[in-house]
């Protein structure tokens, strides 16, 4: 494997997103939303202004679960199929580069752009709030940013996989929307529905493991479980065993969620 080929592709993808102001736009969206949530998140309860980092993170988690997967899917759905459709894929593959190097380059370049937007967008908010945060608060916020980056990479990896399988861009965009609906909206409803239908008598033990099958849920647990104030609010401690909620373990699950779609994409793209 030639590292130089991967960095050449990744560099082009990254600078493309910088130059067309994609990174700037996404970072701004994150900053504005995060600031609005931090200052006006409690408006429904009649309070305005920054309350606590725990409640801010809890609100941000709900936002990130909707927004980051969507942005990552939009970013990556045409990574390969777009090149194929414009006829440049054959040209790239006629060069001294393997298909795997091309795929990794695409992924790392796009992941770099998404990570840069996430860190700078939410990081700016941390700077604004830093005067009101203690070290523990900053640590929690840093964990939230890191897990947001991981969540973005999971959905980017899924998007790149779609872009290898799809026959054309329209097909790929349809699949991306379907994937977003499934993981962000439908999955939890199905799980909840199954629990209610069975009266909670079946699946109680495997329920926490089923949550690991949805990266959005893993992200939620990763952030909420570490916040003592919020955990009880979400009622999570009653359904999710503490041993399974270890951040390093959930982090590993997220990494597996990044690696697996990429591996499937690489396998499919070989042909």
């Amino acid at each position: 494997m030639e590292f130089r080929q991967i960095t050449t592709i990744a560099g082009k993808e990254f600078w493309d997103r910088i130059r067309n102001r994609w990174v700037l736009a996404v970072a701004l969206v994150f900053t504005v939303f995060a600031l609005v949530i931090a200052y006006f998140g409690g408006a429904q309860q009649g309070t305005v202004g920054f309350r606590s980092i725990e409640f801010t993170i809890a609100s941000l988690v709900s936002l990130v679960i909707y927004l980051v997967p969507l942005i990552a899917l939009i970013l990556g759905f045409d990574a390969i199929v777009g090149e194929r459709e414009r006829g440049s894929l054959d040209l790239l593959l006629s060069l001294p580069i393997t298909r795997f190097e091309l795929l990794l380059g695409k992924f790392f370049g796009l992941a770099g752009a998404l990570t840069f937007s996430t860190i700078s967008g939410f990081g700016l908010v941390a700077v604004v709030l830093s005067a009101q945060l203690d070290l523990a608060g900053l640590f929690h916020y840093f964990g939230f940013m890191l897990s947001s980056v991981l969540l973005g990479m999971v959905f980017l990896s899924l998007a790149v996989m779609l872009s290898v399988f799809a026959g054309d861009r329209a097909h790929a965009s349809g699949l991306a929307i379907a994937l977003w609906f499934f993981f962000v909206l439908v999955f939890d409803l199905l799980l909840l529905g199954a629990l209610v239908v069975t009266g909670g008598s079946y699946g109680g033990e495997i329920f926490p493991y089923l949550l690991l099958l949805n990266p959005a849920d893993v992200f939620r647990i990763l952030n909420i479980f570490s916040l003592d104030d919020v955990r009880s609010l979400y009622g999570l401690s009653t359904v999710f065993p503490k041993a399974l909620a270890a951040p390093w373990l959930l982090g590993l699950v997220m990494c597996a969620w990044i690696a697996t779609p990429l591996a499937i994409a690489a396998w499919r793209f070989r042909k």
């Binding site: 130089r4 080929q5 050449t8 592709i9 082009k12 493309d16 130059r19 067309n20 414009r86 006829g87 440049s88 054959d90 040209l91 790239l92 006629s94 060069l95 001294p96 580069i97």
Partner: peptide, 30 residues
């Protein structure tokens, strides 16, 4: 492949790069 040059039919190159940047990108890969 370093010794091959290929021009595909109806290829669409990258709109947001300049002509020179396009060639620099391909020359690095090659």
């Amino acid at each position: 492949r370093q010794r091959i040059g290929y021009l595909p039919e109806n290829v669409v190159l990258y709109d947001n790069l300049t002509g020179l940047e396009t060639l620099q990108f391909f020359s690095r890969l090659k």
